[in-house]
């Protein structure tokens, strides 16, 4: 599904290398987790994969099912199936959540040469999916993320994921700012979307999210590289001993 080879990235504005040779392969249907201390480059990886401005790839490649990602515009990557659940979902005043969703869904369908969804079909689908995420009609009417609580914003991200049906979902610190109940709700939403054709890259600080979204593979990232890879037990190790031991061991 996703294959990253020797990825080096620096910030465009300052001469600062953030990623220093990331290698990663996520197979179809699998859930990979990336853990690591602050400043290790986890969020940068998610932005570079989804095509945010401000980063310069100095070396390496990233592809999704054989399609090179790094040369594409953000929306082209989205149409190929890359979805980023933002750590801080952006507020867009004045733009209704529904309008936003419908525009996005139809833009992607158009890009893939599919028929646009009719207004009534769209409405039915959204309402059904929103219900399982406990998103009420009022939230759908309000402007995108404006005045949403932390939990509402994250649920809204998962609703978008459900509607857009991406292939490669990247969850950037989706657990941040969530209480236990909200985390459970969001995780259930994610788990419901797990299937053979869809992969996940879950970026998180803490093991607790991984109690709910069970990963197949866990990577530890530090200083711009993946320094250790293992099974779910690796996350528990971090939980119990912190990163220090692992980092010391690697060095």
């Amino acid at each position: 599904m996703l294959e990253i080879k020797n990825l080096h990235v620096k910030l465009e504005e300052e001469d600062k290398q953030i990623l220093k040779g990331v290698n990663l392969k996520v197979e179809a249907g699998k859930v990979h987790a990336i853990m690591g201390p602050n400043g290790s480059g986890k969020s940068t990886l998610s932005y570079v994969l989804s095509g945010r401005d401000g980063y310069e790839v100095t070396e390496g490649t990233a592809s999704l099912n054989g399609d090179e990602l790094l040369e594409l515009e953000a929306e082209e990557r989205a149409a190929l199936g890359v979805f980023l659940a933002f750590q801080y979902p952006v507020e867009i005043p004045g733009v209704g959540n529904m309008t936003f969703l419908r525009t996005a869904v139809n833009a992607q369908r158009k890009a893939r040469g599919e028929e646009e969804l009719s207004a009534s079909d769209f409405l039915k689908t959204v309402r059904a999916k929103a219900k399982t995420l406990k998103i009420d009609a009022d939230m759908l009417k309000r402007p995108v993320n404006v005045g949403f609580s932390g939990g509402e914003k994250k649920r809204n991200e998962i609703l978008q994921m459900a509607m857009l049906e991406p292939k490669m979902c990247i969850l950037d610190e989706t657990d941040s700012g969530l209480d236990v109940d909200a985390m459970k709700l969001v995780s259930e939403g994610v788990n419901a979307l797990r299937d053979e054709g869809r992969s996940f890259l879950v970026i998180t600080h803490y093991q607790r999210l991984l109690d709910h979204i069970k990963p197949d593979v866990v990577h530890i990232m530090a200083n711009g590289r993946i320094v250790k890879t293992g099974g779910p037990e690796l996350a528990l190790e971090v939980e119990n001993n912190g990163y220090a031991d692992i980092l010391a061991e690697v060095e």
Binding site: E73, A74, E75, A78, F83, F86, A104, A107
Partner: peptide, 13 residues
Amino acid sequence: DQLFYCRQRGMDE
């Protein structure tokens, strides 16, 4: 950020 958010969801510029 708003533009990137929209584009990440598939809209062109």
